[in-house]
Amino acid sequence: MKLQKATRFGLYATLELAANAGEQLSAGDIAEKYAVSINHLAKVLRTLGRARVIESVRGAGGGYRFAGNARRMTLLNIIELFEDIGPPAPEIEDPGEETGVGRALQDVLVEIDEISRATLGSITIETFLNMARRLKRPGEAGGVRAAE
C-alpha cells in the first residue's frame, strides 16, 4: 500500500503537532523536519485546518497546533481527508469485472481493503505516537513524544 504525497504530509503534520500538543509549530518547522515542500505542506495544512484537526494561531510566534483528540482520532480519519482507500463504489465497474475471474479478483481486493481500513481505523494518534517514540533513532531531533 502506498499513500499519496499529500496524505503522507498530512499525517506528518498531524503527528508532529500532536506530539507537541499545546505548542505552536510553523509550516517551516514541519517542512524542514520531514524534508517536504513548504508550498505543498501549506495546502495540506489548510485541509487539516478545515477539518479542525489543527488550528492556526495568528500573531508573533504563531503557527499551527493540534486541535483534535489524540485518543480518539485515528490514522484513517486523517488519511480519508486526502484520499479514498476503501473499495471502489459498486457502480464503478472495471472491464472484465462481470467474469468469474473479475469477481474473484474483486473479492480478494476487497478483503485487502477491509484489512487496511480496520488496521488504520484502530490506530489512534496517541497509539501511533507511542509506536513512533519506541522507534525513534537515538539523537533524533524534534519531539515525537507521547501525546498528553
Binding site: E114, T119, S122, I123, T124, T127
Partner: peptide
Amino acid sequence: ARQDNLVMSFFRSQGMMA
C-alpha cells in the same frame, strides 16, 4: 472481529500489532 474497532484500538494501545 475486524469491525470491532473499539476493542482493536484498545489492544493496539497496549502495543499489540498484527
